[in-house]
Write a protein that binds this DNA or RNA. Structure first.
Lengths: 139, 139
DNA sequence: ATCTTTGCAAACTTTTTGCACCAAT
DNA sequence: ATTGGTGCAAAAAGTTTGCAAAGAT
């Protein structure tokens, strides 16, 4: 059930791409990342084993993975976007005071999505941005 | 009832700041802006009458206004933030295909905010980011 | 042999900052 | 006379791109 690097690699192959060391390393880093990871984090993880992989390669591969619908990025606030595998899709609450991130099941925003659809004929994809606010401790 | 530049200027004065030409021009541009305006737009508007005002001054004054709670910025998507007067606070639906922006009354997100408060003890400020998705035409 | 992918360096976009000067109080 | 505001130029931060070389098929 957990994201399996081999599945993703197979999807990449199936899409016509070529499988390279850096690409495999990016996928592995994404699968192993427990948390929301920035491109920079991923670069660091990849470079632990493959020191010569350039950050631009990370970005390029993240784009490929996003285009295939395997990865998504989210903006938690100012600063770099964070990336995660699509199958773990969820929403984010970010405290704008302490920066704490809480995850939310997709279902939490479903009523809102339904209302936006009904009243505005708008199909929301509310995952692209986090919901800002203040956590209990910072309130 | 509409945002009155003089009110805002009074608030700026009351906060201890000094009133300068550029500052007044930024406030005026914000009041006159009908839509969501980027710093760049505001700079252009200001420079129509005061050609020497630098973009960094726009940013600095926007920060001052935000610190006073008079202005808010929102991220509609990738690209520059947009600014607007706080009293016109509202939410945004942005179509990620055609870029169309729809405004939403604050009340629309109140049920969600209540739920986040109850279940996660999180006080949402969902205005800082737009809700992405697809509008009717692009669906 | 072909056509992707890569590393590198440089560009780009948006926003911030250091500094010397100017201007509002 | 102060002190905060300003223009300018440069930096910062995050991401993208052009290009020639390396690599996968």
């Amino acid at each position: 059930m957990a994201a399996d690097a081999e599945q993703i690699i197979a999807a990449l192959r199936a899409s016509g791409g070529r499988m390279t060391g850096p690409k495999r390393a990016v996928v592995t880093a994404l699968v192993e990342a427990r948390e929301h990871t920035t491109a920079e984090d991923l670069a660091a993880a990849v470079q632990r084993k493959h020191p010569d992989v350039n950050e631009s390669t990370i970005y390029r591969n993240l784009h490929i993975l996003e285009d295939l619908g395997l990865v998504e990025h989210v903006h938690l606030g100012h600063g770099p976007a964070v990336y995660h595998l699509r199958e773990m899709a969820h929403h984010h609450l970010v405290c704008e005071s302490c920066g704490k991130v809480q995850e939310l099941p997709e279902s939490t925003l479903r009523p809102l999505a339904r209302k936006l659809k009904a009243e505005y004929r708008f199909t929301a994809n509310p995952r692209h941005f986090a919901i800002c606010g203040r956590c209990e401790a910072c309130e």
